[in-house]
Computed example of a mutant assay.
Amino acid sequence: MKSIFTGGRRKVVAVMAIALVASLTQVSSSGAAGADTPKRGGNITVGIFDSFPGYCMADNLANSSLMGARTIYETWVEQRADGKIVPYLLKSFEHSADNKTWLLTVRDGIKFHDGTPVDADALLINLQALRGALYINGLIGKTPKSTGKLGTAVGFTANIQDVVKTGAMSVQITLFQPESDYPESLYASGRFFARAPSQILGADCSTKPVGTGAFKLVTT
């Protein structure tokens, strides 16, 4: 076999070093020349295989439409890669010794797309809407009331006995039965979004989503 390099190890190392420097120089110069200046704005088109039935509490989004909605909304808690449920829009959640009382504290400084604050009032309305209390209010002529109907969220919230505001950023939930994994129910497979009260109490709850996510719905 013909030898490519002659003259010993030092000469081979020297040739390799020169080739490496030349290669890096070429990559660096070509990369700099081809780099584009970042631009703000623009449009992204994403195809999904599910339809959007709506954005209100009773509208159960599935699969790819759920992922689309999660760019508009965020959840009160989130699931980590290891499966553990941790606070997200919430700052913390604490429970009593018997797991029947849960104190939820909202993270400060967050606003919905309409400019209203994410606070205890917003959390309270979300929880009451999810458990169907605002729907019942509408039936019996009480306020606040929502125009949305009952949905699958009722199953995740059936154990809630009462929800009360305990501070500007905190809400206390009392359960009928002990539930040590209540944050799992609050997550609901990523479906319990934080919706702005203006959406929940508005006439267009199913068609005009108002969340805290990175994107807003402009038109459909």
Rank of each mutant, 00 (worst) to 15 (best):
E78S: 15
T6S: 10
V210D: 02
G68C: 06
D162I: 03
V171E: 04
V27Y: 14
I48R: 08
A153W: 10
M16G: 00
V21D: 04
P197Q: 12
A214F: 09
R195E: 06
T75E: 14
A69L: 07
G54K: 05
I160T: 07
K216E: 15
T219L: 05
I48K: 09
V21L: 15
I72P: 04
N60E: 14
G68V: 02
L24P: 00
I4L: 14
I173H: 03
Y135P: 00
L201Y: 06
P53N: 06
D114Q: 11
P117F: 05
A168Y: 02
G132W: 12
M1A: 07
M67C: 12
S23F: 12
A133D: 15
G41Y: 11
E184Y: 03
I140K: 13
V77N: 03
G190R: 02
N63S: 15
F52G: 07
Q177M: 11
A196K: 09
R10V: 14
I200R: 01
T101G: 00
A168N: 13
V21H: 04
R191C: 05
M169S: 15
L186R: 03
R191S: 13
F215D: 06
A158R: 09
G109S: 14
V218C: 01
S64P: 01
L89T: 04
S146M: 07
G213M: 03
S29A: 08
T219P: 00
V164P: 00
V106M: 02
K84Y: 00
I173C: 08
N60S: 14
